[in-house]
């Protein structure tokens, strides 16, 4: 990696100040995307703003009809949280399948969502539950947050602080992993609840997206069979040496079906 300055602020305000003052500075939480990029010399930030000392970014709590999870919550914390397991077990299960034990003990919810890797797990839950992303300056609905591959509605210097997940009646998740990286090749997060019926597809396309045809079918008939014959178009889906767009399109149906079964 190249040389960079290192800051460790203790408040969100200080972190935002540092990030706003230097457009080439980058926040770092679990570092699971940024550190490999640094090691490969693919990123050259002037400074890293280490968020790990900011207490207000931590914590998982139930607040009425939602679960609020701080940006720095590690995947293992979400997977093992009684609040999450009790209210949104599918979210806890999802967190428990991210990467491996080492990854789950370092990677964070906020880092994953802010990075918006098309092959990440959390964006499917955020969109599939109709969650709200809370930043240092505003609240952003999931439908408005994910804007494209590795791209979100976050402005330069804006920091993701927490995510509010409405508690659904039912939710489920299923994914096919990339056999090499174990990231998501195609996944589906489905839910029924205060945000209506939602089907969020990750891994398959350049950005997590809602499968509206499946949502309509599930709204009419909440069962795996309802989506079993809905074909996703491969147009615009990702294609790589592990899975073509056609294969991913096929997996959208399979994973949606399994996610509904998982939701029960």
């Amino acid at each position: 990696m190249y040389e960079f300055a290192y800051h460790k602020p203790s408040s969100v305000a200080d972190a935002v100040k540092l990030l706003s003052a230097d457009p080439e500075a980058r926040p770092i939480a679990g570092g699971h995307t940024l550190l490999p990029a640094l090691k490969h010399r693919l990123a050259r930030p002037t400074a890293l703003v280490d968020l790990s000392g900011i207490a207000e970014l931590r914590g998982i709590r139930r607040e009425g009809d939602k679960v609020v999870i701080g940006a720095l919550a590690r995947h293992a914390e979400v997977a093992n949280s009684d609040a999450v397991k009790g209210a949104i077990p599918a979210l806890a299960r999802l967190a428990g399948t991210i990467g491996d034990v080492q990854v789950r003990n370092r990677g964070t919810l906020g880092g994953s969502v802010a990075n918006n890797d098309p092959a990440a797990d959390y964006p499917a839950a955020v969109l599939g539950l109709g969650a709200t992303v809370v930043t240092d300056r505003r609240r952003i609905a999931a439908d408005d947050f994910f804007t494209g591959m590795f791209s979100t509605a976050l402005e330069p210097g804006e920091l993701l602080v927490a995510i509010e997940f409405p508690i659904p009646e039912k939710a489920g998740y299923a994914k096919m992993k990339n056999p090499a990286s174990r990231y998501v090749m195609t996944g589906a997060f489905v839910s029924r609840g205060p945000q209506g019926v939602r089907v969020a597809i990750n891994g398959a396309g350049p950005c997590v997206f809602r499968q509206r045809e499946m949502e309509a079918a599930l709204a009419a008939n909440w069962s795996p069979d309802a989506v079993a014959n809905i074909r996703q178009s491969p147009d615009g889906l990702n294609s790589d040496i592990h899975g073509s767009a056609e294969y991913r399109a096929h997996l959208v149906t399979v994973m949606a079906k399994r996610a509904v079964a998982d939701a029960g």
């Binding site: 056999p179 090499a180 990286s181 990231y183 040496i241 592990h242």
Partner: peptide, 23 residues
């Protein structure tokens, strides 16, 4: 079942890391 060394048509190694080479 898993391991494939893949070059693209231009001669670049696509399976050049463990993100893409399935150990």
């Amino acid at each position: 079942l898993l391991e494939a060394c893949v070059y693209d048509e231009n001669g670049q190694l696509l399976s050049g890391s463990m993100m893409d080479y399935t150990m």
